[in-house]
């Protein structure tokens, strides 16, 4: 385990060293990521500024959901975002053997060597939105531990999504639109689940638990949770394991002749 941490730490240092060589590009990328990030609450801002709302939800409560989603997305993007593109490139070029020859797990190798420092912009933007929403929404500080547990569960969903996307690229070779499929599913997690009908709510809670990415953690922070909600963390962890298992299975299905 210590070796894993040591390798991961070295890879993060290398990623930032690489970024610092092209500082302007890095800063621009951060700014652009941040800008794209601001698009997402724009709809909410315009809706509330026009005097409408999501029924039962105040502006800062919705902003809290969206900031939690952005934070989770940023964190998962930094850690796992590069795995899809690296896998896709290796599979398309037939060079995945290089990864297989490394003296460590292929998945761990790709995760550690593809740390995406550009997603830092999402974390910064998400963090700023979160602090704003935290100050102005009626948040219960005592619910912070519950929030942390549910946020971790949501992060498991994000990790599972990224693994599934990367695994898909073994069979659907070179399709750069794979993330669009998963992004469209995750859109349900960006808004209060209460606006959707029961069937979608059920799917987003138990089957593909995108509701856990932001809706449930934010609801916990707003004091609207009971102990049963923690049971929903189970499918999230299972979802992450499903992603890891699928990726490892697809690695075994990979065929190549040396690039």
């Amino acid at each position: 385990m210590r070796t894993f941490f040591s390798v991961y730490k070295s890879c993060i240092s290398a990623a930032f060293a690489r970024a610092s060589a092209y500082r302007l590009n890095f800063l621009l990328s951060l700014a652009i990521t941040l800008g794209f990030n601001l698009l997402f609450p724009l709809v909410t801002i315009l809706i509330y500024s026009a005097g409408s709302s999501f029924p039962g939800w105040g502006f800062f409560e919705v902003l809290l959901i969206q900031s939690v989603f952005t934070l989770s997305n940023g964190l998962a993007g930094m850690m796992f975002g590069g795995v899809l593109w690296a896998t896709m490139q290796h599979v398309r070029e037939g060079s995945f053997e290089i990864v297989l020859l490394k003296p460590t797990s292929p998945l761990f190798f790709l995760i550690s060597t593809n740390f995406d420092e550009d997603s830092l912009g999402l974390l910064v933007g998400g963090g700023a939105l979160f602090v704003t929403a935290f100050i102005f929404a009626d948040v219960s500080v005592l619910a912070l531990p519950a929030f942390a547990i549910l946020f971790a569960a949501g992060f498991c969903v994000m990790a599972g999504m990224n693994m599934l996307m990367a695994a898909t690229s073994f069979k659907w070779v070179g399709n750069s639109r794979i993330p669009e499929i998963f992004d469209s599913i995750m859109t349900f997690g960006k808004y209060p689940l209460t606006i959707f009908p029961n069937m979608i709510r059920g799917i987003a809670t138990f089957a593909i638990p995108v509701g856990m990415i932001a809706f449930y953690p934010a609801t916990a922070l707003l004091g609207g949770y009971d102990l049963k909600i923690f049971l929903v963390a189970i499918p999230c962890v299972l979802f992450m394991f499903l992603g890891v298992w699928t990726y490892r299975y697809m690695v075994r299905a990979y065929e190549g002749v040396g690039g």
Binding site: V43, S52, S53, F54, P55, Y191
Partner: peptide
């Protein structure tokens, strides 16, 4: 579908 439910909910409130 997402847009449909977002705007249906929004128009419910005003």
């Amino acid at each position: 579908i997402v847009q449909y439910f977002i705007w249906t909910a929004v128009f419910e409130s005003g």
